[in-house]
Structure formats: structure tokens, C-alpha cells
């Protein structure tokens, strides 16, 4: 069987993320960083004005970037490289929409390591496999490629006990891409309603989070948040496989946290009440420097 020898010919190509950090992509535009040390000068103001999605603003004399809107086009970094630059890291998914608003501040290794170890613990603690139902609600098609990449030998999410399922009735996580078209409103809601509790919704990509470059119009909404309640946001246009994986791992934390709980009416099927502190994705008590990077989850 020639295919068998072919399969072995490359050795191990699978990433060790989230157990170890993955060194992929020093040139990769994972996210936009804002230098906190600089005041807002003319060039910075111009860059803010030129952002095609309105992702940049000034809050309390500091530049704030809304990663739910940023499509990583690089325009701000080209206009004002001293304030804006790209970073290859990818673990920027957040619980709740407002946590995507990030003000200038360090994204240090320590913070990232802290998130990673927390996630690894959480997947292990869950001790069961997780099933994901994907729904396209008006993507540009690239998001589906990046989700499909999760099953390639590099990311191989099966090793983490993560599987894609055809049936919403077996799904724990609803992974939604796209701007939220009017045509997909009913199919998306129906899928969401068919899922058992607890269920967690991930908005994958800037389009799903905010409408991105396409934005709201006669045929689309500004993201999927008006259609189903979103728990986890993954930035990017499209989000990278690692970014998606990070978002899924955050969601698994939520699945683990809410298993066995009943849900309340105003947030049906999502999270009921605040997370127990030991399972909160952003344990503020042990944070090295809370506040400058992510706010605690809205929920």
C-alpha cells in the first residue's frame, strides 16, 4: 500500500498547541498592536481616520482598537508605523464583545503563557469530546478554509477530542462565520434552537463579529450577534486556524462551566449567570496586569 508509506514520510507535523506554544509565523499578521507609550499625534489621527472599518478610536487619550472590526488590512501600520504594528500571535479570542476593544498595552509572553496553561487544564478537565456544528451565515468563503484546516495533520483537532458534527442535536458549540445575511437568519436560528443545552456560540472572524468590511446593508446585518447570542468572538479576516482553535478552547471552558446548569430566559442556551471564578476564562485575581488587555467577560 503505497499511501501508507507516503503517510509516514513526513514524520510528525502536528502542532503541540495548546500544550506548547507554536512557533508558527513570525511574519504572520495575527493581530494589530498599539503602542501605549505614545500620545495621539497628527499621523496617528490620520491613521485612525483612514481605517476602512472604523476599528480605531481614541478613548481617554489612548488609541483603542476594536478587534471585532479590524480586518488586519495594515493601512494604519503603513501610515503610522510607530504606533501600529502587527504581531504574529493569534490567541485573541474573547468572551463577550466588549473585551475585543483593546487599548495600547503590552501583550507579554507571560500573559500568553498564562492563557495557554489555563486552556490546557480546561480541556483535560472536561474529559470528554466536544462536537462542533459549523454554520455559514454569509462568509466570503475563506473562513471555511481555515475551519477545514483544523482537521489537517498540522492542527488535527481530533487529538484534542474536538469533532465536527452534522447534527445540531449532538453539538456543544455553534461555530458561525459570516456577516449574518438575512437569508441565513432563519436557518441559523433553527440550528441554534435544535442544539441541546448547554450550548456555546462562537462568532468566527470580523465579519461575524461586526460585519467587517461588508457591514450592515439591505442583505446583511452587522455580524451575527442580532441573530443568536454570541459567547466567544474570534477576531481576524479570516481568523487563522490557531485563532479558531484558541476560540474553541475558550468555548470549551464555557461548556465545562455550564454543564448541568439550567439556563435563564434572557440568555437562552448560553451562559447562565457569572462563571464560577475557578473556571472563568480570565481569572482576574492571578492576572499580572489586569485591565490593559482584556476585560472580564460580559457574562
Amino acid at each position: 500500500m503505497p499511501w501508507i508509506t507516503r503517510g509516514l514520510s513526513e514524520g510528525i507535523v502536528t502542532t503541540r498547541y495548546p500544550r506548547r506554544s507554536d512557533g508558527y509565523g513570525p511574519d504572520f499578521h495575527g493581530m494589530l498592536l498599539v503602542d501605549p507609550g505614545r500620545g495621539v499625534d497628527r499621523a496617528t489621527e490620520q491613521a485612525i481616520g483612514e481605517c476602512p472599518t472604523g476599528a480605531l478610536s481614541i478613548v481617554d487619550d489612548r488609541v483603542e482598537v476594536d478587534r471585532g472590526r479590524c480586518i488586519l488590512c495594515g493601512r494604519c501600520a503603513a501610515l503610522q508605523p510607530e504606533v501600529f504594528r502587527f504581531d504574529p500571535s493569534f490567541d485573541h479570542s474573547t468572551i463577550g464583545r466588549s473585551a475585543l476593544h483593546v487599548r495600547g498595552g503590552p501583550e507579554d509572553e507571560e500573559t500568553l503563557a498564562w492563557i495557554r496553561s489555563g486552556l490546557a487544564r480546561r480541556t483535560k478537565a472536561l474529559r470528554r469530546s466536544i462536537h462542533i456544528r459549523h454554520v455559514d451565515a454569509g462568509s466570503d468563503g475563506s473562513e471555511e478554509w481555515e475551519i477545514a484546516a483544523l482537521t489537517n495533520p498540522v492542527y488535527d483537532v481530533g487529538r484534542l477530542g474536538i469533532f465536527f458534527t452534522a447534527s445540531p442535536r449532538h453539538a456543544d458549540i455553534l461555530l458561525v462565520t459570516g456577516v449574518g445575511t438575512v437569508g441565513m437568519t432563519t436557518p441559523l436560528r433553527t440550528t441554534y434552537e435544535a442544539m441541546p443545552h448547554p450550548k456555546v456560540v462562537i462568532a468566527a472572524g470580523a465579519d461575524a463579529a461586526s460585519g467587517g468590511m461588508v457591514g450592515p446593508g439591505y442583505a446583511s446585518r452587522g455580524g451575527i450577534g442580532d441573530i443568536v447570542p454570541v459567547d466567544v468572538y474570534v477576531p481576524g479576516s479570516p481568523p487563522s486556524p490557531f485563532g479558531l482553535l484558541h476560540g474553541i478552547l475558550l468555548a470549551i471552558g464555557l461548556v465545562g462551566a455550564t454543564r448541568g446548569q439550567t439556563t435563564t430566559g434572557d440568555h437562552p442556551g448560553g451562559l447562565a449567570g457569572p462563571l464560577p471564578p475557578q473556571l472563568s476564562p480570565h481569572e482576574p485575581a492571578s492576572r499580572p496586569e489586569p485591565g490593559n488587555r482584556m476585560e472580564a467577560g460580559e457574562t
Binding site: I71, A137, D140, G178, T181, G183, M184, V214, S237
Partner: peptide, 29 residues
Amino acid sequence: FYKHRGIEKRFEGVSIDDGVLLAERYEGV
């Protein structure tokens, strides 16, 4: 029709620099 986003309409009135960003997302692959 399910995923019609009305993206052509979004081109109206934008700058050519923003136009490219829309074009890149018309058929993202």
C-alpha cells in the same frame, strides 16, 4: 440566495483603496 451579502452595493461611493478590500472579500478564496 441564502448568503447573498449585497456586496456590490457596498462599492458605491467608497475610495479605490477601500474598493480593493471589498474586492478581496467578494470571493475570499
